[in-house]
Simulated scan of single mutants.
Amino acid sequence: MGMRGRELRCRLLQNTTVIIGSVALIYSVCSPSWYQNKGLWYMPDVTNSSTSERTEFHHPLSRAVEAERVFGVIATMMAITAICIALLLICCWNPDTYIESKMNPGRILHPGKLLIVILVPTALLYFIAWSLFTNRHMEQMKNDITQFGSAYWMGMCAWFTLLVILPIIYLVEQCSHQEPDISI
């Protein structure tokens, strides 16, 4: 029971980490408190100095903001999917039932692999959005870091949880996992 108990604890910890990291990511993308109560969805006022007209999508800053939003939306949709899968694994996965791979007979499917395959790209996409936002506000960050809101810091925690902590938990689970003897 010792090895199996450790496996179950790792899987529960992994699924809980998925849910916490994904909820933090979703909150961060949807919240307006990134910088000075302006979130990812706030459109900066971009004016063209020669004509003094607002050019929304022709300015490089506008394209950067749009890229942040696209990466944020895709990461949010993937995070919602990961939460659903984690809840299914918590509620419905029977650890005593081992499922063989149809593509690679003899190999056992592990639910943690599915979460890693979904969440590492999710965290990378969100990290790109977060990095673009950080790069755009680098000067303000140097002057006063306290103007960044809870969503900005929650986003940092989200990508760190999904890119660093989740793979570590997965590796611990894989190290503690022992393949069952399947006789044919």
Rank of each mutant, 00 (worst) to 15 (best):
Asn143Lys: 15
Gln147Phe: 03
Leu115Cys: 06
Cys84Lys: 06
Asn135Thr: 11
Cys92Lys: 14
Arg69Ser: 05
Pro105Gln: 09
Phe127Asp: 01
Ile118Glu: 04
Pro121Lys: 06
Lys113Tyr: 11
Gly149Val: 10
Met156Arg: 10
Ala151Glu: 09
Phe133Glu: 08
Met154Gly: 08
Cys157Pro: 02
Met78Lys: 08
Val73Ala: 13
Thr97Ala: 13
Phe148Lys: 00
Val73Asp: 05
Asp96Arg: 12
Pro121Ser: 12
Ala129Val: 01
Leu114Gln: 10
Cys157Gln: 02
Ala158Thr: 03
His137Lys: 15
Arg107Glu: 11
Ala158Lys: 04
Leu89Glu: 04
Thr146Asn: 13
Leu119Ile: 12
Leu125Asp: 11
Cys91Leu: 14
Thr81Glu: 06
Gly106Leu: 00
Leu125Gln: 13
Val73Cys: 05
Leu119Asp: 06
Met138Val: 15
Leu132Arg: 03
Thr81Trp: 07
Gly106Glu: 02
Phe148Ser: 04
Ile128Cys: 10
Asn143Tyr: 13
Tyr152Val: 00
Arg136Asn: 15
Asp96Trp: 05
Ile85Ala: 12
Thr122Ala: 08
Leu119Pro: 05
Ala151Lys: 09
Tyr152Ile: 01
Ser150Tyr: 09
Ser150Glu: 13
Met103Leu: 14
Val73Tyr: 09
Met77Asp: 02
Thr76Pro: 05
Thr97His: 12
Lys102Asn: 03
Val120Ser: 00
Tyr98Trp: 15
Glu100Leu: 13
Val70Tyr: 15
Lys142Cys: 07
Met138Ala: 15
Gly149Met: 06
Pro121Gly: 04
Val73Glu: 06
Asn94Met: 08
Leu132Glu: 08
Leu88Ala: 03
Val73Phe: 10
Ala158Ile: 01
Asp96Phe: 10
Ser101Met: 08
Arg136Gln: 15
Trp153Asp: 01
Val117Ala: 07
Phe133Lys: 10
Leu115Glu: 02
Thr97Ile: 12
Thr146Trp: 12
Met156Val: 13
Met103Arg: 11
Ala79Lys: 00
Glu100Pro: 01
Ala151His: 13
Cys92Leu: 10
Thr81Ala: 06
Phe133Ile: 10
Ile90Thr: 06
Ser131Cys: 12
